[in-house]
Design a protein around this nucleic acid. Sequence first.
DNA 1: GTCTATAGCCAGATAGAC
DNA 2: GTCTATCTGGCTATAGAC
Lengths: 190, 190
Amino acid sequence: MDSAERLIESARELLWERGYVGTSPRAVQERAGAGQGSMYHHFRGKPDLALAAMRRNSAELRAQAEAQLSSGETAFDRLGTYLLRERDPLRGCRVGRMAMDPDVVADETLRQPVRETFDWLRGRLTEIVAEGVAAGELRAGLDPSDTAAAVAAVVQGGYVLARAAGSRQPFDEAVRGAMGLLDAARPATG
Amino acid sequence: MDSAERLIESARELLWERGYVGTSPRAVQERAGAGQGSMYHHFRGKPDLALAAMRRNSAELRAQAEAQLSSGETAFDRLGTYLLRERDPLRGCRVGRMAMDPDVVADETLRQPVRETFDWLRGRLTEIVAEGVAAGELRAGLDPSDTAAAVAAVVQGGYVLARAAGSRQPFDEAVRGAMGLLDAARPATG
DNA sequence: GTCTATAGCCAGATAGAC
DNA sequence: GTCTATCTGGCTATAGAC
């Protein structure tokens, strides 16, 4: 693994742990075992390196989510696979975390990978809910787009509750709660 | 309003806008129109001032939430009042934001007001869901604690989605989605 | 209570040697 | 490509005068 690669990987980790504001080029270099000169040779500066790291984080998240969202027979199963997948709630979401960072949100370029990731996720969830409704598996009154946003929000909000509590319990409760509500929206049981 | 008061108010605003890591004592002093000496006379340092500001943010949030959670005839109405209350999603939550801050989460003292706020909120929501279930207004299978966590998470996650999108739309969708799912959990309509 | 001075360290970046 | 030197300025805090 060359220097540029190690710098990106280190930036990925630090952005996840400490956010954009809390991550310094110095700290990234140190973790990567690279010097100042190396970093500024490969990247224009902090925003440039962070962008490369964030794009990789986004791609990774999307690949994982897609795997879960396409796994399961029914729409309800696929939503369940996504919601109940094993996560580390106290670590939070490596992409969603960036949305709380003032310097990321203020910069259109830096925000782009974050925006695209969640646009895609909500779109994908919307499709699945719509399939469920079309198949009569979820009640007809359910708005696919709204329901999809709620599902995505439960996961992101679950991270907030878990980190606030210092325990994964609120996260687990929140996703179970979402599953319970989705279950209530099944005509067969509702 | 004296200096100490202005410092706390300025810290409140900056913590909301930029988080703990992104807020410097210098910036707080500048916004408050107070000097170094004044700040370090009234507070031991950055953590001490931040703690005072966070406690006030927590108290304010709790008072607002309690007002909404006690407004409405039925449990379903009270949850609706809470979820659909007017918010500024792009600004995010002044308490939940702190849960994403590494230096806050790492320090038990700083995390305390954040933890207490969400412990209280989830507890309060749990009571309301339990009342709804007991009254036959929400289906019996619904777990009060899990459902409460899901409701709280939708709001916190809605902020993440809105800030990622640069638009309040995903937030509004998420809370409408949550309302739709709660509606599906009413025996009368489900 | 508030001011100014001072301190040591870090952020973020540039320049030029190798 | 990577190194070291250097720069400006901000962070967080302390000390002592007023």
